[in-house]
């Protein structure tokens, strides 16, 4: 995944111009100002606000907290949690831990790739879903497992996986 994220920042540059409200970031920066070792919580908080870490946020954090842009980028690209591009409304995390691997998690990812028409790490065109593979979610006895938002779904089969996606799509349609 690490190499992939470098490509993501290139994508980001291309999409520049997306408006974000930088004011949302101020309380967070205020809270951590002058505290040592607070870079990771700041970045986590930023991602909580925007869903990813936008370029403007990089500049703002660097300006207010005095971190070098290069060290910010270094940290962001090191940890799997941080994203450099916007994500879909629902993030699907398919577990590829050992137990899930043994129970054929690969198949679940393939099914999702097939029905959502995206590859791993990508977001669907309607910006509804982002598909990700993750290491262990810690629900090994329910393998294979995926997590959508905060909800965990276990003992997945081809049928149940398709049903779960269909249900989310339907409820989204109703909301419209």
């Amino acid at each position: 995944m690490r190499v992939k994220r470098i490509e993501q920042i290139r994508d980001l540059k291309q999409q520049a111009g997306g408006e974000i409200n930088i004011e949302l970031l101020q309380p967070l920066l205020e809270k951590y100002k002058g505290k040592k070792g607070s870079l990771i919580p700041v970045l986590q908080g930023t991602q909580d606000i925007y869903g990813y870490i936008p370029e403007q946020a990089f500049l703002e954090i660097s300006k207010k907290l005095g971190y070098k842009l290069s060290s910010l980028y270094g940290v962001v690209t090191f940890y799997a949690q941080f994203r450099l591009s916007p994500v879909g409304k629902h993030i699907i995390k398919v577990c590829h831990g050992t137990a899930c691997h043994v129970q054929n998690a690969k198949k679940i990812t393939e099914i999702l790739q097939d029905i959502l028409k995206v590859s791993d790490g990508e977001t669907t065109e309607d910006k509804l879903f982002t598909l990700e593979s993750v290491a262990c979610l810690g629900c090994c006895s329910l393998a294979p497992v995926m997590m959508i938002g905060d909800e965990t779904y276990g003992k997945l089969t081809e049928k149940s996986t398709k049903k779960i996606i269909r249900e989310i799509k339907n409820s989204e349609k109703q909301k419209k």
Partner: peptide
Amino acid sequence: EGAGAFVCGEETALIASVEGER
């Protein structure tokens, strides 16, 4: 809170991470 890096289970890497570095 960790940010998703297996290597941070290693003591010295964990310390670096708590300090806010890679």
